[in-house]
């Protein structure tokens, strides 16, 4: 395979919370030793429950959150040690789309101002060029050129997300982190934005890290999927392989829990008990073992390494070889 666009190795993001003069505080291991690549033109899905660290992981790749240790390489260049002066150039190659398009747009700036600000910051084009480019960007995301004069509150949620996408595209990035970009949208609007992402990916050859929790959206959009739990990778495989042949009990449980829009498929399933443990006090050994229906004593002892079980398919479970998790 050709050199990946983004390469992440043993990335850790730890936060200290509750530190005072009298207390050292608690370390929260939001991301705890994650490694994966994103290929050129690839859409990689990142799934997990809230608290799994998926948002922190996405942001740390762009250094919107500083990694604690590990490596992020973009086109072969180490990102984690870049001086601030060179971060700006990096961010013209990597962009992010947020979940809530209203919270991420400045309500006092017109859409045109928001988009041309991104161009100015990166010194792209003359003033006239920029006005032209703003119009092109709006068209590219399916909005009329004339809306450049209007303000965020004049748009519906779906239109605002289109603006959020246009802003990310303004600087011509090669890589986009899309953090739950359709989760806050109405059902009938989600499909429009998913189609837009599909079109842009095809036209621009974008690589995307798509963070989400809706497994049917992930399956539809992504080439490959990484399943995250408490800051660690449980399983990674091509989308087709992961959904047809999950090898980690957590992946199976996630697939089982997703409601199926077919009333005849109402079924009794393995329901995970309880909630995600606190990332400040993760269980020993396998972090999933406290909710795993297949846990044995040995699971508490060592952190299971990610082991290759098939073509581009890796799983972190000591029982992966003996469990049959197919439906």
């Amino acid at each position: 395979m050709a050199e990946p666009l983004v390469s992440i190795a043993d990335l850790k993001v730890h936060f200290t919370v509750g530190r005072t003069m009298f207390s050292p505080g608690t370390v929260v291991r939001a991301v705890d030793g994650v490694s994966f690549d994103v290929g050129r033109g690839e859409v990689l899905g990142l799934v997990g429950e809230s608290g799994s660290g998926k948002t922190t992981l996405g942001r740390s790749i762009l250094r919107l959150v500083e990694p604690t240790s590990g490596s992020v390489r973009f086109e072969g260049e180490e990102v984690t040690t870049l001086p601030p002066s060179r971060l700006k150039r990096l961010r013209s190659r990597m962009q992010i789309i947020f979940q809530d398009p209203y919270a991420s747009l400045n309500p006092r700036m017109s859409v045109g101002q928001t988009l041309s600000e991104a161009l100015e910051l990166h010194a792209i084009g003359t003033r006239a060029d920029r006005a032209e480019r703003v119009g092109d960007l709006l068209e590219q995301v399916g909005l009329p050129r004339a809306v450049a004069q209007r303000f965020p509150h004049e748009f519906s949620g779906g239109q605002r997300q289109r603006i959020g996408i246009a802003r990310a595209l303004a600087v011509n990035p090669g890589f986009i982190v899309a953090d739950e970009p359709v989760s806050a949208l109405d059902v009938s609007i989600q499909a429009q934005i998913i189609n837009l992402l599909q079109d842009l990916r095809q036209e621009l050859g974008l690589s995307i890290l798509f963070i989400g929790h809706d497994l049917s959206v992930i399956e539809f959009l992504c080439d490959r999927v990484v399943v995250l739990y408490l800051g660690r990778i449980m399983e990674t495989a091509t989308a087709a392989d992961l959904y047809a042949n999950p090898r980690h009990p957590y992946t199976r449980a996630l697939l089982d829990a997703a409601p199926v829009p077919d009333p005849r498929k109402r079924r009794e399933r393995i329901t995970l008990k309880g909630d995600l443990p606190s990332p400040s006090a993760p269980p020993s050994g396998c972090v999933f073992r406290t909710r795993c229906p297949f846990a044995i004593a040995a699971c508490a002892e060592t952190v299971p390494p990610l082991e290759t079980v098939g073509a581009r398919h890796q799983v972190a479970c000591i029982r992966a070889g003996e469990l049959d998790l197919t439906e």
Binding site: S188, A191, I194, Q198, R201, S216, E219, A240
Partner: peptide
């Protein structure tokens, strides 16, 4: 979203049947 496995294997970029317009 539903995946058409045959189309995907053929390398086609799938699209959803979205409802146009806004609520």
């Amino acid at each position: 979203p539903s995946v058409d496995h045959a189309a995907r294997a053929a390398g086609k970029v799938a699209r959803l049947k979205a409802i146009p317009g806004s609520v």
